[in-house]
Design a protein around this nucleic acid. Structure first.
Lengths: 246, 246
DNA sequence: GTCAATAGAATGTATGGACATATGTACATC
DNA sequence: GATGTACATATGTCCATACATTCTATTGAC
């Protein structure tokens, strides 16, 4: 179940060989050239065919195994799993999600201020109560219809924010642009009934079901850099996640 | 910022060296022996100290970098991130979650039948409409209070299920016990207002906000093995997730 | 004909070395 | 004193090879 698959690698390119191979294989799988169930040639043959060492070939395949596109069975071989394994879980902002789905995102900054952190926010951000934080309340919508009401806190020591920037850009891209390296985020997703303010802002009846989300994001050294509480219109928004067995 | 750290490896053990090292390092980090911010010795020294080759040492550290416990910076060194990186996202069932949190889970099987798959279920499970599937409706609770209403479909060709088994065990552990290798699951989490049936079963007012979840689980070859729709009491249940930047 | 031993094939683990490249610092120069 | 260059350092990539382990299929014995 193999043979053709004309992968090529450029040994002069600055992009690592194993990455080129992994990318080529992934493209072949996602394009359907290697349909689910296909059994690949063994690692040594593949390496020889591309004039690579086995460790390099293996490292490329490792990536795809971790990504869930390939399954290796010792003593048997390697098989294509299938492209129903879509994008795995990523750390993205809502703004970026909306851009991808083609909607026309808008942002209304309802509140923007520097305030002293209360004890709850200080605990979440790992700072002292009273330290200055940005407090934002934003209303996000697509194509004119309100979608999400978002309340966020960010330590002022991390970056400079202005109301004008926030009306144009996503919070995450602004912070990234000022050297904040997001690494991971803890989220809690649940449901709440809309209170009067939420109902008015989002254009739903009071008591309507909303998706709620609490998030605390951390940078590459594990320092909390942002925390927030968001609510979404349940008829327009769900969280999609892919759980992977390790 | 290093020096002691008395790791040892057993070269006669059947457990891979790189795994022993990774485990030892992870223990040292999580125990606080290597606090966040600690800079590790370079890979070559560490390898020499443990009488290992650099690739082996590096492979061990790779695991921890992927797990988010270490950060490597080229030309600089490797640093401990911190243990606030708790358990990442895992593929678990609700039943197992409840056992971990100490609650006393109960299961009430409201419906159990073999039925022909309708077109929607058939599409999700990748089978032909009309093929036989198990159709389950279960009410889960903790300490006597209802928590979740769960409706599931499983192809009959995959395993044998009985009502009695389901009252004692989680669905996933039953299927795993019959050779189903869960690999990943796609989930959509949102919110809905409780209808009359849901409200009665869960003990809430009609119209109350509920957390909703749709899931399709797949095995190691990418075949769908289970799909379902669940609703949870919003006051007792949220989804916790950790997003990791890759 | 059935079952067990065996050989082959594939992945899993490990070694040792070599060179490339990014980063921070110390030194030399202007 | 400011600036730029050179060097030391640590990680990033890659190769050639060896042996271990597991699964499959075939062979051979009873």
């Amino acid at each position: 179940m193999s043979g053709p698959l004309h992968l090529t690698v450029d040994k002069t390119s600055p992009v690592p060989l194993y990455h080129q191979v992994a990318q080529g294989l992934e493209d072949a799988i996602r394009s359907g050239e290697l349909p689910p169930g296909t059994k690949l040639d063994n690692e040594i043959d593949l390496a020889n065919r591309l004039n690579l060492s086995r460790p390099t070939m293996r490292k490329a395949m490792d990536q795809l195994v971790r990504a869930g596109l390939l399954v290796r069975k010792r003593g048997v071989g390697t098989q294509v799993v299938g492209p129903q394994v879509r994008r795995s879980l990523e750390l993205t902002s809502l703004h970026e999600d909306l851009q991808r789905s083609g909607g026309n995102p808008s942002t209304d900054v309802l509140d923007f201020a520097r305030v002293p952190a209360d004890s709850e926010v200080a605990l979440l951000l790992g700072i002292a109560p009273g330290d200055e934080v940005y407090h934002l309340v934003r209303l996000r919508g697509t194509d004119g219809a309100p979608l999400a009401l978002m309340e966020n806190w960010i330590p002022c020591s991390l970056c400079e924010l202005t109301r004008e920037q926030l009306e144009q850009n996503g919070l995450y891209s602004l912070m990234r642009g000022q050297g904040v390296n997001f690494q991971l985020a803890h989220q809690r997703v649940g449901a709440v009934s809309a209170d009067a303010f939420q109902a008015e802002q989002l254009g739903v009846e009071p008591g309507a079901a909303l998706v709620s989300m609490h998030r605390t994001a951390m940078d590459d050294l594990g320092r909390p850099v942002e925390t927030g509480r968001h609510v979404y219109r349940a008829d327009k928004f769900t969280f999609e996640l892919t759980l992977v067995q390790r």
